[in-house]
């Protein structure tokens, strides 16, 4: 008879908890008993080689795929994310690699696409422009010349910034970014990494999928590695070095000891 089992304080409860998640496509087991925690105010990097299941896991969280088994907990409550609308209702926004921006529309129009504000049956452009400007300013996206310029005229980093701003505009709590720095130059990459840090400083949970270890070590608070559909390790970033992450990605294990580490599989 002891009081050792104290209830976990609400603050330490991760925003999103994935437990024993399975997903297969025909005979291919894409995800196998995956456990993952995404806490608020932290950047979690999800690494893995091609075909490790990073995109499938992302799409299960974003509501594009339905997991076969397992449970997802949102703020401690079990949830079923059936489609993209369910995900955005919870506060999950995904920025895909192709960004899904319409080149011919301007920044404001892209940020409000599908959720336009309407007054008397007509688009309320003034109020949308004001809100978009506020969001961009709060993320300190200041390099765009005008928020009324078409997205076609933006650089790669600016496009990424617009896609992120579009995602955080809707009071989202979790932003998932798929390869945000792929195809970007040095300066552009720095812009995007700074933006990711700013999202964390706002208290959002961020999950970044990336191959680029340099970028990962710059922004990640914790690192999770998928290997052939299994989540082989999740720990704080200081528990890894580049070589150990590469070991996990390519072999599913590592003999290197960098810091205190708990292997999950």
């Amino acid at each position: 008879m002891t009081a050792a089992v104290a209830p976990t304080p609400a603050t330490s409860e991760p925003l999103l908890k994935i437990r024993e998640l399975d997903k297969h496509f025909g005979p291919v087991q894409a995800l196998y008993h995956v456990n993952l925690d995404l806490p608020l105010g932290q950047v979690t990097a999800l690494c893995g080689d091609n075909g490790a299941g990073k995109t499938v896991l992302t799409k299960c969280v974003a509501g594009i795929y339905q997991p076969d088994h397992g449970q997802v907990y949102w703020e401690g409550h079990p949830v079923h994310i059936r489609n993209a609308r369910d995900a955005s209702r919870l506060g999950i926004e995904t920025v895909y690699q192709d960004l899904a921006l319409a080149d011919n529309l301007d920044i404001v129009q892209n940020m409000f696409l599908g959720r336009e504000r309407v007054r008397y049956g007509l688009l309320d452009e003034d109020s949308m422009e004001r809100a978009a400007a506020e969001t961009l300013a709060s993320l300190r996206v200041t390099t765009v010349r005008s928020i009324r310029q078409p997205v076609a005229s933006l650089s790669g980093g600016q496009r990424q910034s617009v896609a992120v701003a579009k995602a955080v505009m809707w009071n989202s709590k979790l932003v998932i970014m798929d390869e945000p720095t792929a195809a970007l130059g040095v300066v552009q990459t720095k812009q995007v990494l700074d933006l990711i840090k700013r999202l964390r400083d706002r208290g959002l949970a961020v999950m970044v999928i990336s191959h680029n270890l340099t970028d990962i070590f710059q922004v990640a608070d914790q690192i999770a590695v998928l290997y052939l559909g299994r989540l082989v390790v999740q720990d704080k970033a200081s528990a890894f070095d580049r070589q150990s992450v590469v070991d996990y990605m390519t072999t599913g294990g590592s003999s290197r000891i960098v810091g205190a580490r708990t292997e999950t599989n």
Binding site: A84, L101, A102, N104, L105, Q109, L113
Partner: peptide, 17 residues
Amino acid sequence: RYVYAIGGNPEAARRAG
């Protein structure tokens, strides 16, 4: 707005619901 969005990027329009 949706007509232009579909003309510019149908996939973006689809993801926007």
